[in-house]
Computed example of a mutant assay.
Amino acid sequence: MADNPLLPEPGGRRVFVALGDSFTEGVGDRSRRLPNGVRGWADRVAERLAKAEPGWEYANLAIRSKRLRHIIAEQLEPALAMEPALITLYAGGNDILDLGTDIQALLKDYEFLVARLAASGATVVLFTGFDVRVSPLLEPLKKRNAVYNRRVREVAARYEAVLVDYWCFDAFYDPRMWDSDRLHMSKAGHKYLAGQVLDHLGVPHKIKSKDWEPPAKLGLREWERRQRRWIRDWVLPLFGRKLRGVTLGDQLGPRWPEPVRVPRKGGLKKLLPE
């Protein structure tokens, strides 16, 4: 990694800071021992960075349900204060799901955030959003997502950020890459994305894609049963929270609020008490 222009030279400060919402927090990749009960792609990237080049520190400020305005207000300045060499950002997905969002105002704020991060001198990694085919009810949001992705690509080029074009990953058309809520990646999805981020950064790793048999076709009765369960377990509670003005992240803090030295062996779990 010493000759990698995207990462610091040997002896330089190696701090990786991850910003965002549930996508970066790691929701869907459950781990009882780790903070907030999840692991996620960012933890996996941090661990591979440390294996390839000892001395990396890692902070993850992402919290589920956060909107872009929250990320700017709560995560931007703490991240810059850490003087990171590497920053990842995914933000705006929750705003897109809010029906009252002004998409142009959102994208203006998004560019403001990227500009601040890029001005720090860190390598900045950005992500487009995937076209999650959850339900025909959400099809009207597809156009908004396309506008968001187009602007993310433009902003990435303007500020010379690394773009992980999540929209183009065909692997995520397999339902097994998604958690039971159909909106967050499963463990397999997080592992796959970690591999993609590492590839974009030129960091060696041994993460392999799942070699699955094609998913079994569901009969009508089983499809209806799963739809009813999904609506009961995920859709109705989601709308209930929106009506009450609460989110799943209201009582949570960042998983790794301060940079931690990532162990080269054993991963981040080595930092936790037995």
Rank of each mutant, 00 (worst) to 15 (best):
M1K: 00
N4R: 11
L6P: 11
L7D: 00
P10E: 04
P10V: 04
G11D: 01
F16N: 05
D21N: 05
G28K: 07
N36Y: 00
A42R: 04
A42P: 06
A52Q: 01
A52I: 09
E57D: 02
A62L: 04
K66P: 00
K66M: 08
I71S: 01
A79C: 15
L80R: 12
E83N: 12
A85V: 13
D95E: 10
L97D: 03
D98H: 09
G100R: 01
T101Y: 12
I103N: 02
I103F: 04
L107M: 13
K108E: 05
D109G: 04
Y110I: 02
L113H: 05
L117F: 14
A118W: 10
F127N: 01
T128H: 14
T128N: 11
V132W: 10
P136D: 07
L138Y: 10
L141T: 04
A146Y: 13
E154M: 15
V155F: 11
A157M: 12
A161Y: 08
V162I: 13
L163A: 06
Y166A: 07
R176Y: 05
D179P: 04
D181N: 01
Y192P: 04
L193Q: 02
L201S: 01
K206D: 15
A216Q: 03
E224P: 02
R226M: 12
I231T: 02
D233E: 14
W234L: 09
L243Y: 14
R244L: 12
D250G: 05
P254K: 01
R255V: 08
R261C: 12
G267V: 06
L268H: 00
L271Q: 03
L272N: 05
E274P: 02
